[in-house]
């Protein structure tokens, strides 16, 4: 215990000394501190930076002096002195300092964390889409409006007031939702008395029948009637239910087909008989 204690003490002292040093003499310390980060920014000031820090403007030192002071700086070759020297320093440690709020939330939530969350950088990259001007956005807006008008113009046609309001507005919303992938229409009424629903369905089928009958009588070929969809081939039987047959009234009913599927194609009876007999004997023996 004693040696570790001693070591720890020394380490702590070292750290405190370092921090004090950093706060007082800044540029001399090898550790990364605020002063040096500013210095690095200053060095890169020759390159037009997208984000200009105010602090770098204040510092006004000749760049040559600055570079000479830098301990880890490799030195400038004589020929290049008239050209602009570009130094790029990327420090991963300072870039990814802490989890972003979203990432922290995702990681510390009660669900197991997703394996594909990408690390978000603390400092987002400077705006890359600075070049797009307001006219671009306006154009996009107009584009969208035009597309919508084209898609929904048929709604406006028969109505008296040619504006997207009232009933038309709801219809337009429904169209847009369906374009976005909505499965059901918002105009479809979900709950109504059974008699109403029956009536509506009966009316629909009657209309459709009438249309088809008249078309047939007039010799018009219509599209194929949509077959009534029978239930899917594999229905979900639930976890606990038997995998075969129909369970009703406490009995599992197996159709002929089920039995045939279980048994498989019939083989010669002699082989099966032999095996069955063998099993029987074994039981008796025990």
């Amino acid at each position: 215990m004693a040696p570790t204690l001693g070591k720890r003490k020394r380490e702590g002292a070292d750290i405190s000394k370092k921090t004090r040093k950093a706060s007082s003499e800044g540029p001399e310390s090898a550790a990364l501190n605020a002063q040096e980060i500013f210095r690095r920014h200053f060095e890169t000031q020759f390159k037009p930076l997208p984000v200009i820090h105010k602090s770098t403007k204040i510092v006004d030192v000749a760049p040559e002096d600055d570079l000479e002071e830098e301990s880890d700086w490799g030195g400038i070759s004589e020929g290049e002195e008239d050209r602009v020297q570009v130094v790029e320093h990327t420090d991963t440690h300072s870039r990814i300092a802490a989890m972003s709020k979203e990432e922290l939330k995702a990681f510390m939530s009660s669900k197991p964390p997703k394996p594909t969350t990408e690390p978000s950088l603390l400092r987002g990259n400077p705006d890359t889409n600075e070049d797009d001007d307001p006219s671009e956005a306006a154009n996009l807006k107009k584009d969208l409006a035009l597309q919508r008008l084209l898609a929904e113009s048929h709604l406006l046609e028969p109505s008296k007031n040619p504006t997207l309001s009232g009933n038309n507005r709801h219809k337009a919303t429904d169209l847009r939702l369906q374009a976005l992938g909505s499965k059901t229409s918002i105009l479809k009424q979900e709950k109504m008395p059974m008699s109403h629903r029956r009536g509506i369905i009966a009316k629909q089928t009657e209309k459709e029948d009438k249309r088809r009958r008249e078309a047939r009588e007039n010799g018009i070929i219509l599209e194929k009637a949509k077959m009534k969809k029978s239930s899917e081939g594999k229905r979900d039987r639930g976890v606990g239910a038997p995998g075969v047959g129909k369970f009703s009234g406490g009995t599992l009913k197996l159709s002929k087909k089920d039995i045939f599927e279980i048994e498989g194609p019939k083989r010669s009876s002699s082989g099966r008989g032999g095996r069955g007999a063998g099993r029987g004997r074994g039981k008796r023996g025990r």
């Binding site: 990681f107 009660s110 669900k111 197991p112 964390p113 997703k114 394996p115």
Partner: peptide
């Protein structure tokens, strides 16, 4: 358990989104 073991279940066809371990 939450961050290292529960994600293993995903490979077995068990939806990790339906697992929850709340402390």
């Amino acid at each position: 358990v939450r961050t290292a073991i529960l994600p293993l279940y995903e490979a077995f066809g068990i939806m990790a989104s339906k697992l929850e371990l709340r402390v």
